[in-house]
Structure formats: C-alpha cells, structure tokens
C-alpha cells in the first residue's frame, strides 16, 4: 500500500513536471510576455523592471525554475483581462463547474447502468436494439449541436426553461449552489442534460458489453441450475462483476466531462471554469490558461488515483502495485 502511494506520488511529480514544462514553452511561444505586461508607451526603466520581474534577462532554464517556484506558491501571475490573481479567478468559478459535472455524472450513471443492464440482459428485444442504436447516435452527435438544439426547442420555441446563466444561487451546507433555489434548478437542467449525453451513451455500451461477457460464465450457469431468480443473478452476481470496467470508464468519463464543460458552459453562458478558459484563450490571457492547465492536470491525476483505490474496494482480488 505504501509502495503504491509512493509510486503514485512519483507519477504525479513526473506528470506535473512534463505538463509544467509544456505550459512554460507554450506561454513563451504565445506572444511576447513583455508586451502584455507593460503599456505601449512604457519608459525604458519600466521595461527593464518588467523584464527583471519576469526573469527575461536570465537563461531559459532559470526562467522555468522561476515559473515553477511561483506556481508552487499558487502564483500564476495576474490575469491581463480581469486584473486579478489567475488562480483565484479559477477557484472562484470552480463550484459552478463541479456542480454541473456532478449532476451530469449522476445522470449518466443512473441512465447508463439501467439501460446498459437491460440491453445486456435481453439483447434481442426490440427495446434493447433501440437503446443500442440510440447510443451509437449519442456518441455521434456533436455536444455543442445538441446544446443548441435544446436551447432552440426548450428555450426559444416553447419557452419552458431558461437557457443562459446559472440563475439564483442559494446556500446548502455552506456551499453556494444553484440547486438551492427552484430558479437555479431550472437553469441547471439543460446544461446538465447536454453534458451527460455522451457519457450516458458510453456507459450504456460498456455496461452491456460487460453483462454479456459475464452472462455466459460458469457461475451464472451454476446459479441458474440452483434455481436462483433471474433478477438476482443479474443484479446480485453479474452486475457486481461488471463494475470493474464501469469504474474505469467512470474515471475517464469524469475527465471528459470536465473537458466538455468548456463547450456546454460556452453555449449556456454558465459562469464556470470552462467558459473562463475559452474566454481566456480567445483573449490570450496566458496566466489563466497556464493556471487552468496545471490545475486540471492535478485533478486528472487525482481522479486516476481514486479510481485505482476503488478497484480494491470493489474487487479484493486486485492488489495495488
């Protein structure tokens, strides 16, 4: 266990080193950092001061160390656009994004597993075939387009649901969330549905494949011969053995949900990290971009770590190495 932890932390260090190096190269490639920091009519002394602040008079490796040192202190510089600490801006918007991701994840797990189990248990029924064809359609549809379709149908055509922003934000257990108010819940429905669509499709397909693989195993035959009820075989035995691949894809899906918030939030004007990063990319706000990338890298490594831990909880046969 300790060996596993050490290995994982070492891995985290390597990933962060690689990512920070890339981010550093990227920020030096995208525009001249000096021109972003000082005004056009700056005096020579102002330019010299800024050069020293950024360490531009030093060799490249020294600049990199400076960047890492500042990053470790949570200092990614000041956003050009908002004139605020970049990391602060991102963290401020994180709850909005996490809220969306958590709801979408819950939706995709519930629908994904229910439909997936059904399609796996009764592969030849008409409903299963419909589910499978819909799931192929689900992974084929561009998520931004789905969002626009929802905006048009539910927002513009029938005026049922709001299509922009987060709505009224209330407080539950000290966390500010849209779920605390009815207005907020109305606002969250469409973005969460849009975001979850791709994951639902993937989880359906994976669950079905796992169920089908397990249905032909000997232990299922034994249970049948014993006279165990079909429902019990399905949920008591087969589903448990299918969980391992589902957990894997759960981790992957969580990652891709975070990635796809960039699109969903842009379409629905949801004030989260995803919209912030797209706005920042469009206005070349490098401090925010680099802070976001490193933060997301940490999040992904942590997700992978948790997924590995979950394996052991679900299946004690798997040892952490």
């Amino acid at each position: 266990m300790i060996k596993f932890l050490i290995k994982r932390i070492w891995q985290l260090v390597i990933v962060l080193f690689a990512v920070s190096l890339l981010v550093f190269i990227m920020t030096s490639l995208v525009g001249d950092p000096l021109s972003l920091l000082v005004k056009e009519n700056a005096s020579a002394s102002q330019i010299a001061e800024a050069t020293e602040y950024l360490g531009l008079d030093q060799p490249a490796y020294h600049q990199y160390f400076l960047f890492v040192k500042n990053a470790l202190n949570g200092d990614f510089g000041v956003s050009y656009r908002y004139q605020q600490s970049a990391i602060h801006l991102i963290i401020e918007r994180m709850p909005a994004t996490l809220e969306l991701v958590v709801i979408a994840m819950a939706l995709s797990i519930v629908f994904g597993i229910v439909f997936g189990v059904y399609a796996g248990a009764y592969p030849n029924s008409f409903l299963s075939k419909t589910i499978m064809n819909l799931s192929i359609a689900g992974i084929s549809v561009p998520s931004f387009w789905l969002g626009m379709l929802m905006i048009y149908i539910f927002g513009i055509k029938f005026g049922l649901l709001p299509v922009s922003g987060r709505g009224e934000v209330g407080t539950i257990l000290g966390i500010k969330t849209s779920l605390a108010t009815i207005d907020g819940i109305k606002h969250v429905i469409l973005p969460a549905l849009t975001l979850s669509m791709g994951s639902v499709a993937s989880i359906i397909r994976l669950t079905r494949a796992g169920i089908q693989e397990n249905m032909v195993q000997d232990y299922v035959k034994l249970a049948r011969a014993k006279g165990v009820k079909n429902r019990k075989i399905l949920f008591g035995h087969v589903l448990k053995n299918t969980l391992i691949p589902i957990i894997t894809i759960f981790g992957l899906q969580l990652g891709s949900l975070i990635a796809y918030t960039t699109i969903t939030e842009t379409i629905f004007a949801w004030p989260g990290m995803g919209k912030l990063i797209i706005d920042s990319i469009n206005s070349s706000d490098t401090p925010i971009i680099s802070a976001y990338i490193l933060l997301v890298a940490v999040i992904f490594v942590v997700i992978n770590f948790v997924v590995d831990l979950l394996y052991c909880v679900i299946d004690p046969r798997i040892e952490l190495k």
Binding site: L252, A259, F300
Partner: peptide, 17 residues
C-alpha cells in the same frame, strides 16, 4: 501521460499554441 487527459482538452490547448 497523454491518455490520462481527455483528447479534446489536449487538442484545445495545442490549437491555442
């Protein structure tokens, strides 16, 4: 390392550069 990140996000940042 690359597989632990969603490909959309990687493509997004590459296009930024």
């Amino acid at each position: 390392i690359q597989l632990s990140f969603p490909s959309l996000l990687i493509a997004l940042f590459l296009m930024t550069i």
